[in-house]
């Protein structure tokens, strides 16, 4: 039995320890915001926070998350930070097909909480593990820039 915190709630599962965190989140807990783009740690569509670190959930066997704190996009959806990111992605035009976007938003939040005033190069670096095939990234970079400005002072708040 593996126990961990998922979006602030203590949960447990009987799934085998080799099961992927991604599948557990999506199938057992029906949280669909975490997407699968590659299953090999190469696209970031499955990004979640494990103990506040941005991780690709497709590479994590659930045996390793016992006792940790896991947060998915659903876990940040109600936050002020998310609201700022949501608005910034909208006004910068960062969303096309949307499939990479929850992962991008997680990566954006991770970046800004570590570095609330990133340079363009730091933003590019911060989302370099997240593939987007539609936008060519520039409008996503703009969105993060905008979110940094709009959410000034908010990013390091817990």
């Amino acid at each position: 039995m593996i126990k961990f915190t998922l979006n602030g709630r203590l949960v447990e599962t009987d799934a085998p320890p080799t099961a992927r965190l991604l599948d557990l989140i999506r199938d057992e807990f029906t949280l669909i915001g975490t997407k699968e783009g590659c299953g090999e740690g190469e696209c970031g569509a499955c990004s979640v926070f494990v103990n506040n670190h941005l991780q690709n959930s497709c590479l994590i066997p659930i045996g390793s998350i016992d006792g940790t704190d896991v947060i998915t996009i659903e876990g940040i959806m109600e936050s002020e930070q998310f609201k700022i990111l949501d608005e910034s992605y909208s006004s910068a035009g960062g969303v096309q097909c949307g499939y990479c976007i929850p992962g991008m938003v997680m990566a954006s939040a991770a970046l800004l909480s570590k570095n609330p005033h990133p340079s363009e190069a730091e933003i590019r670096e911060g989302i370099s593990g997240n593939l987007c095939r539609c936008t060519g990234y520039n409008m996503i970079v703009d969105a993060i820039n905008l979110a940094a400005k709009k959410g000034d002072g908010l990013w390091q708040k817990k």
Binding site: R26, I32, G33, I73, V95, C97, G98, I101
Partner: peptide, 21 residues
Amino acid sequence: TSVPKKDHSGKVSGQLAYISD
């Protein structure tokens, strides 16, 4: 003149169901 995209919210929150969802 740009307007907000119709499908923005569901996409940014990941709650829009693609076929694998």
